[in-house]
C-alpha cells in the first residue's frame, strides 16, 4: 500500500493514536493513587494555612491531623451550589451554644484562562476577611499567577467586607475613590484581567454564601 494513500494515512493515524493514548492512560492509571494523595494533602495544607492552624510537622499526616482537630467541614446545599463550609473549632466554641468560630468556604469562578478555586476565611459575623488561599488556578505564571504570592494574599487579612455597598463593590481589588478604604486591596500590575475576575467571583460568592449561610444557619447549628 502506498504511504500517502488515504487508507494508509487513516490507518496509521488511528494506530499511532491508539498506541500513544494507551501509553498515556497507563502512566495515568499507575500514578492515580499518588495523585489523589497529593491532591488531598494540598487541600489540607490550603485549609490549614487559610485558618492559620498550628501544624506539627510538614508531611501529609500533620496537615490532615491539624485540619481534623481544628476545623469542622460541612455541606450547605442550595439551588445554586453545594457549598463546602469550614468552621474553626476551639474549646470555647465547642462548649458554647452561641459562639461560633471563624467561617470559611470554598469560592470559585472563571479566571482569565481557567477555573480559580480557593478557600476564604471570615470572622464569625462574616464582616472581616481573615485569610484567603488558593486551591487551584490556571493563570499566567509571572502575571495572574502572582495571586498566590504572599504579598498579595496578606493584603486580604483584616479587610472588611462592605456589606452596605452594592453587590459588585463590597470588596475592591484595584483602584477606588478612597485608596485607604477598608474593603480595598491592590491589584496585580500587568494582571488586570485576573484581578477583575477574582474581584467579581469573590463579590458574587460572598453575596451568595452569606444568603445561604443566613438562610440555613439553623441547619448548620443542628449539625454541630
Amino acid at each position: 500500500m502506498k504511504k500517502d494513500s488515504l487508507p494508509y494515512v487513516l490507518g496509521f493515524m488511528l494506530a499511532i493514536s491508539a498506541f500513544f493514548g494507551t501509553g498515556v492512560s497507563l502512566v495515568h492509571h499507575s500514578t492515580k493513587d499518588m495523585l489523589a494523595r497529593n491532591e488531598q494533602m494540598h487541600r489540607n495544607r490550603t485549609i490549614a494555612h487559610a485558618f492559620d492552624l498550628p501544624v506539627v510537622g510538614r508531611d501529609a499526616d500533620a496537615f490532615a491531623a491539624a485540619v481534623e482537630e481544628h476545623v469542622r467541614e460541612s455541606r450547605l446545599p442550595t439551588d445554586q451550589r453545594n457549598w463546602t463550609v469550614f468552621e474553626r473549632t476551639t474549646e470555647a466554641v465547642e462548649t458554647s451554644e452561641t459562639d461560633r468560630g471563624d467561617i470559611g468556604f470554598i469560592f470559585q469562578g472563571q479566571g482569565v484562562w481557567d477555573l480559580i478555586r480557593g478557600v476564604i476565611v471570615l470572622s464569625p459575623d462574616l464582616e472581616v476577611i481573615r485569610n484567603l488561599r488558593f486551591l487551584e488556578h490556571g493563570e499566567t505564571p509571572g502575571l495572574g499567577g502572582r495571586i498566590e504570592e504572599d504579598w498579595f494574599l496578606e493584603q486580604f487579612q483584616g479587610v472588611r467586607v462592605a456589606w452596605d455597598r452594592p453587590r459588585d463593590s463590597r470588596l475592591i481589588i484595584g483602584t477606588a475613590l478612597d485608596p485607604d478604604a477598608a474593603n480595598r486591596v491592590d491589584a496585580i500590575t500587568g494582571a488586570t484581567g485576573t484581578s477583575q475576575a477574582l474581584m467579581e467571583m469573590l463579590n458574587t460568592d460572598l453575596h451568595n454564601f452569606r444568603q445561604a449561610f443566613q438562610d440555613n444557619q439553623h441547619t448548620l447549628e443542628t449539625e454541630r
Binding site: 500513544f20 493514548g21 498515556v24 502512566v27 500514578t31
Partner: peptide, 12 residues
C-alpha cells in the same frame, strides 16, 4: 504523548 507522561509523573 511524552510530555503528558512527563507532566503526570512530575505531578505525582
Amino acid at each position: 504523548s511524552f510530555v503528558m507522561m512527563v507532566d503526570i509523573m512530575i505531578r505525582a
